[in-house]
Design a protein around this nucleic acid. Sequence first.
DNA 1: ATTCAAATTGACTGATTAGTCGGTCTAATT
DNA 2: AATTAGACCGACTAATCAGTCAATTTGAAT
Lengths: 186, 186
Amino acid sequence: MLDKRTKLMNAAKVLFSENGFYATPTAKIAKEAGVSNGILFHYFPTKADLIHAMYYDIKDRIFIYSVSQIYKEATLKESIYTLWLAAVEWNLENAEDFEFTLQFENSPYFSTEIEKKHKYVQMSIELAEQGRIQNVFKDINTLLLFQIMSRLVETNVKFLKHNPTFQNDVEFKNKLFEIAWDAIKK
Amino acid sequence: MLDKRTKLMNAAKVLFSENGFYATPTAKIAKEAGVSNGILFHYFPTKADLIHAMYYDIKDRIFIYSVSQIYKEATLKESIYTLWLAAVEWNLENAEDFEFTLQFENSPYFSTEIEKKHKYVQMSIELAEQGRIQNVFKDINTLLLFQIMSRLVETNVKFLKHNPTFQNDVEFKNKLFEIAWDAIKK
DNA sequence: ATTCAAATTGACTGATTAGTCGGTCTAATT
DNA sequence: AATTAGACCGACTAATCAGTCAATTTGAAT
């Protein structure tokens, strides 16, 4: 049995990804979660608090998953590939989280400052910094390199969602990665 | 003196880009536009109609601007560059339109079907199709190529907005274009 | 001058919604 | 057994908002 805080976040995830968070009343979230209206505001004083908590939760989980995938002896390109693939596959398998994140990051709730704070971003930026030092990447602002990769991941996930045939096509995914890699490599 | 329909769209543009369209009441739009509440619903039967009308209006304007920039004798790469630069500069100069479009395209109002319908997209896809025929671009779905370019433009505009120093740096912009070009070229 | 449709107004409403609150239940602590 | 603090409930409210409508103005056509 999940605790009610988690139940609420799960219910919100489903409803938010269906109708967006503005069109989803808090009462509906509580009902879907099978808990009382009041308890929602007990755990999340405002609706915005719930939304932010969900965002950080998602980013935490994708971070943990990504880190678990990389291995020590990998080359830089291999590490980038692993991270790229981890991000693509995680977002494909967690479609609701993906939808939610997209909406959140393009809403007035979000600022680049929020993004920079997260360990996931920091880890990626460190990797990008390595690439620049090793003279493998283009000589461009590191944060920008990261954002380019992130955006390409988004585009790829969207495409794969609309074209499920390719979802298990390793060769095709390699092609997609080459696009991203060509973009950032020198 | 602008007609009230245009006044309403201008006012909505400002308010939407500041607070998003869910947090912007129709009454506030009418007030900002200096017209009555009722006339808004005379021109736009629902709030969603207003939002859609604004989206198409923006896409029309960016299309007209982009087309005016390309010239006949240009090579394929030159044409792509011209379109890329037109998009980047137009979005930089029309920051509110840019914000609005971003929000809209990542909201439940939007679907890929809407996007495909627009002449702007069609023109770009034709260009991408040419590139594939001439064996210049990677052998990948044309719509995907277009979406990759669009996303990179977005990323570039966001970066230039946060780093105004580079906004008039032609050399830097060329670097940005090379990223996009390397991504799609064979 | 008269007509008439379209433009325009702004007060109004019905529905919705985030958040509150008084009170109950549970379980660990003393 | 008494105390207490946090979990939990659900009815309630104050505010907000999209959309309506009856009435007035405008301006072009007859």
